[in-house]
Nucleic acid binder design. Structure first.
Lengths: 229, 229
DNA sequence: TGCCAGGATATTGGATCCAATCTATCACCG
DNA sequence: CGGTGATAGATTGGATCCAATATCCTGGCA
């Protein structure tokens, strides 16, 4: 029943949106892992999951395979899957990938950004200001970044970027769960947006790189301390 | 029998290396798609694949799900999977991702590169010089790049990089199949290696960016012309 | 008392079977 | 003669069943 706890709530609502059961199971499990509903290292027992989803083991197995390919679950032959662990090394890895992808996405997107896009980004900053719920905060932050990248016209690059934004978010939630959540200043986001409004690609790219880099550094510092202690 | 043709040769040799059937099917299919043994757009019929692999449909299904997550196959619910199509848009996407990832990988790896690494890269260039087989050429090129990135100490970044190098290679093979293969000069690789030997990170990163960018540009030019005509 | 062997149990991996859905064909009607 | 609807065949999606493997516990032996 360890997994069941928070999961069954997610299961209840989202069913009809998906065309196949596998799709449904995969999407729900992915969200559960990313939002921390299922903790890192938790064994993902097929029978147990099948029961909470109200399906057979087969769609569960297919979903687990997809999660493995996305590095959200680890497979051990004949021993089953576990939720991907959280480690300082992997956190640094995700940070490095973000530092590579996001400036590229921004540079491609910048010329195509509309006034409406920039206004929406502004609104998202306003919403983030003083947001008390860390989960909501993560979502707003992600949407802010993705709004700036949206006009890159590179679906695959954007999907990869969002995937790693989500992975980073998972790490942040984990940190908040351990250290408590304290809302951060939105100054960095504001100057980034200003550079985008000015159409200054070089500055904007430098700012996201720094922004992402700093976030990754803080995170790995916490994770390394935790692994040492 | 469309798929069977070249596939059965791959099937014959690699079986014992893998611990589970799914793993075996996935690896073999992946190689077959990446090397062009199975052409883009080919329907991947589960029953047919199961028979050529000598297994049941189940491991085939799990393998297909993993290929979907890697963007090597496209799923259409209740209609089956097809080998990922080749398009100018997707080629540009892969190019952009490489242009983001590879400079980052190189920058992280450069300080850790040993003399042995650099010598191996040199040897790979020598092997590439005048290599007549496009398949072998692709492998050497990939190994050259990965050798330079190997000391980045970021397994996830490296895996992602190699994945997209492989995807780019698939596109190149496709181009060669249409236009014929003509060995390219290794000058760009040589100056890149020289910058690495000199420990000049900025120059080396600029050079890979340009190198990858030019390759991507040539490729998309060909693909766009093909789609137009 | 600690360690190794062997068997019981739990769990995954793989095969088979049935149901749901899509596609193509053909008849019928406007 | 063209278009639309029904129906048959093919193919995938999902459930159940069996086999293979790993883990854990227990008992015997040094």
């Amino acid at each position: 029943m360890a997994v069941n706890d928070g999961l069954s709530r997610l299961v209840a609502r989202a069913r009809p949106r998906h065309r196949t059961t596998t799709e449904f199971v995969e999407a729900t499990l992915r969200e559960a892992i990313l939002t921390g509903v299922i903790a890192p290292g938790t064994p993902l027992r097929q029978e147990e999951l099948a029961e909470t989803f109200g399906v057979s083991r087969m769609p569960v197995r297919e979903a687990l395979r997809q999660l493995e390919a996305r590095a959200l679950a680890e497979f051990h032959p004949h021993r089953g899957a576990v939720v991907a662990e959280i480690s300082a090394a992997d956190g640094a890895d995700i940070g490095a990938i973000r530092m590579a992808l996001e400036p590229m996405a921004l540079r491609l997107s910048l010329p195509g950004l509309t006034a409406a896009d920039l206004d929406q980004a502004e609104e998202l900053i306003a919403e983030m200001d003083g947001e008390a719920d860390p989960g909501r905060m993560g979502e707003l932050n992600r949407r802010f970044h993705m709004t700036l990248y949206a006009r890159a016209g590179r679906p695959r690059l954007l999907a990869l970027t969002e995937q790693h934004l989500l992975a980073a978010d998972r790490y942040l939630r984990f940190q908040f769960a351990a250290l408590g959540y304290r809302p951060r200043s939105q100054d960095e986001h504001r100057v980034l947006l200003a550079a985008c409004r000015a159409g200054d690609a070089d500055t904007a790219c430098r700012l996201v790189t720094e922004h992402v880099g700093q976030a990754a550094e803080q995170l790995t510092a916490f994770l390394e301390a935790r692994e040492a202690g």
